[in-house]
Computed example of a mutant assay.
Amino acid sequence: MSYYRLYFMSSFSGHIEGFEEFDAEDDAQAVKLAETRQGALGMELWCLHRRVRQFAALDLASQLLEQRHKLKEVKHQLETELPDDVSRPENRKA
């Protein structure tokens, strides 16, 4: 096991906003763990004095639009699969 530190970097100043520490079997496992933390801040993954990888900040607006589109597709699919008289708000009796 090796010790890793994942730094979260400010997109504006480039300064460190925070960090997380963890152990991993190797660089590949550490990178996989780091990818799950990727978000609005850039990141740098370090193993002691060696930088393993840099991660760019994600474009969250694009991700939200993509998720919204996927949810609409799922909603449409569910609505077409339901029988006409089941679970639709307009068919419920008050």
Rank of each mutant, 00 (worst) to 15 (best):
M1F: 11
S2K: 15
S2F: 13
Y4N: 01
Y4D: 05
Y7M: 00
F8E: 01
F8M: 05
M9V: 11
S11W: 01
F12P: 01
F12K: 11
F12G: 04
S13F: 00
G14N: 02
G14W: 01
G14I: 03
H15V: 13
I16F: 06
I16A: 11
I16T: 11
E17R: 12
E17V: 14
G18A: 09
G18Y: 02
F19C: 15
E21G: 06
E21D: 13
D23W: 05
D23L: 14
A24F: 05
E25A: 14
E25Y: 07
D26S: 04
A28L: 09
A28Q: 11
Q29K: 11
Q29C: 02
A30Y: 03
A30D: 04
A34K: 03
A34H: 01
E35G: 08
Q38W: 14
Q38P: 00
Q38T: 04
G39Y: 09
G39W: 10
M43S: 08
E44D: 08
E44R: 10
C47Q: 15
C47S: 15
L48F: 10
L48N: 14
L48K: 14
H49I: 02
R51F: 02
R51D: 00
V52P: 09
V52T: 10
Q54F: 04
F55C: 05
F55P: 01
A57D: 07
A61E: 10
A61R: 04
S62G: 14
Q63V: 15
L64Q: 07
L64M: 09
E66W: 05
R68M: 09
K70N: 13
K72S: 13
E73Y: 02
V74A: 15
V74I: 14
V74C: 12
K75N: 05
H76Y: 12
Q77G: 01
E79N: 03
E81C: 06
E81S: 10
L82H: 01
L82M: 07
V86T: 03
V86D: 11
E90S: 08
N91T: 11
N91L: 09
K93M: 07
K93G: 05
K93S: 09
A94T: 06
A94Q: 01
